[in-house]
Design a protein around this nucleic acid. Structure first.
Lengths: 257, 257
DNA sequence: CGGACAGTTGAATGAATTCAACAATCGTGG
DNA sequence: CCACGATTGTTGAATTCATTCAACTGTCCG
């Protein structure tokens, strides 16, 4: 394991990656998650600056709101632990969950354009975050071009991820959606050194269905079907992936390279 | 009409806005399109720099490819005239159109994270673009923080727009999708001083259906239904919006503020 | 002029939803 | 620590919206 160039002695940990995990932009992009490390490649002087705008260790309990649509854009959030769902809604009250975020991912990016959050973010379990003051991020970014460039990359990655979700919502049937969902989770957990084959779903069946654009009951039915077919074992929110290749076959997944 | 502050004497026109249209960031954000002006608020010295990386007036004919998935990320594209569709696809060949872009919009942003395009971009009609060298954008952005900030805003806007499309794909029935689609087009044309009530669809029924996640035949049926109900008049690709309020009622649209 | 493509419409089919009833689990307060 | 209400998950049956398949028309362009 190489040392992390350019990050020598940093005291800011926006993101709580295990020390064994190399902080490498390319690797992150490949495994389909956002860029894991905002301060990647910054020099010590810049890190000190960055440190001054980071509020540390805010925590939220299950169901608590981080921000809601229309609210003034105050912070960008980096998840340290736990998980958060983001959603948008129509005037008549229907809701679409647009993202499900776990440790190491960023929230609030879409607010930058207008200065107001466009979506709602809600903790799915006890969740710890770092908050970065948006207003000072502006001035800060003027002084640290590499930081801004990092953010460009992160946003670019978010756009790509959204493209994938659109592909899923537009072109896949319910089985494919769920298979893809499980595979995606597996990859993201693996990237954080959690088990890739056995994990806890922090979203309810209802949330998963909403996220994937299908009914809660359909989620249940298909998870049962997967279980009967020997692809997974699932009990309430504990999943174990048994036949990963077959699951991939069901998903027929991913944007062609 | 005011003169454009801060752009005095610039020879770079990344985007071919009519001179009567004021180049105003906030207004653009409000009307739901991307930021219209990349070089907004740059000083003369910066403009000269920017000019050096902009390749001008590349044109593509209907059906021609601007870039395809996997290709190395060389350029960001700004559409001067015409229109372009972008799409992603699954390994088994299914395609999802993720964007439909007209004059004044940017392409290729999602490639920044990985250095390769993730989507395909294809001209829908004769289309003229400006290309910005990606490699030099890097160094350039280091020198012009305000440019990078503009790009952050543009990307943020793209993310928000993608959220809207997800909402559409996940939670709306076919009628709502088409109503929303027409309204969205209307707004974007209006923002460019084209007619908001009468315009040309550059996408085929098949493309529209793909974009909205419904079958081509369903698009036809529902457009006919709209026509019979007196909401629109449509002949082939020429549309006229007749009862806009009713169309909005059908769409029950937009993320709540 | 004719072939190709784009668009339209009908009929049969099907995947997923909705409605409903029920089971399992959680968590809070007595 | 248990009980009870609330929440979350599961399964069945009827329904529906959209798809698929198919035949056909109109329009564009070489």
């Amino acid at each position: 394991m190489e040392s992390m160039q350019g990050m020598s002695g940093s005291k800011v940990t926006l993101l709580p990656l295990p020390p064994t995990q190399q902080c490498e932009a390319v690797a992150c992009a490949q495994c389909g998650v956002y860029q894991l490390c905002l301060p990647l490649g910054l020099h010590q002087a810049d890190m000190t600056l960055l440190e001054s705008v980071v509020k540390r260790k805010e925590t939220y309990k299950r169901g608590q709101l981080l921000f809601r649509p229309g609210e003034r854009f105050d912070f960008i959030y980096a998840i340290r632990s736990g998980s958060v769902k983001t959603s948008v809604c129509t005037t008549d009250g229907r809701v679409q969950i647009t993202g499900f975020h776990i440790a190491g991912e960023l929230l609030g990016l879409s607010a930058l354009a207008s200065g107001h959050y466009s979506s709602e973010a809600r903790a799915l379990e006890t969740t710890s975050v770092c908050r970065v003051e948006a207003e000072r991020l502006d001035e800060l970014a003027q002084q640290i071009p590499s930081l801004q460039y990092q953010m460009l990359k992160i946003m670019s990655g978010q756009i790509r991820q959204d493209e994938e979700l659109m592909l899923l919502l537009g072109r896949r049937n319910a089985e494919e959606r769920l298979a893809e969902y499980l595979i995606g989770l597996s990859r993201r957990f693996a990237a954080r050194n959690y088990s890739a084959t056995q994990f806890h779903l922090s979203m309810s069946r209802g949330d998963i269905g909403n996220y994937l654009g299908i009914a809660e009951e359909t989620v249940c039915r298909i998870l049962s079907r997967f279980q009967n077919a020997g692809l997974i074992a699932i009990k309430r929110r504990e999943v174990r992936l048994i036949d990963f290749p077959q699951l991939q076959a069901v998903a027929r997944l991913s944007a062609a390279a």
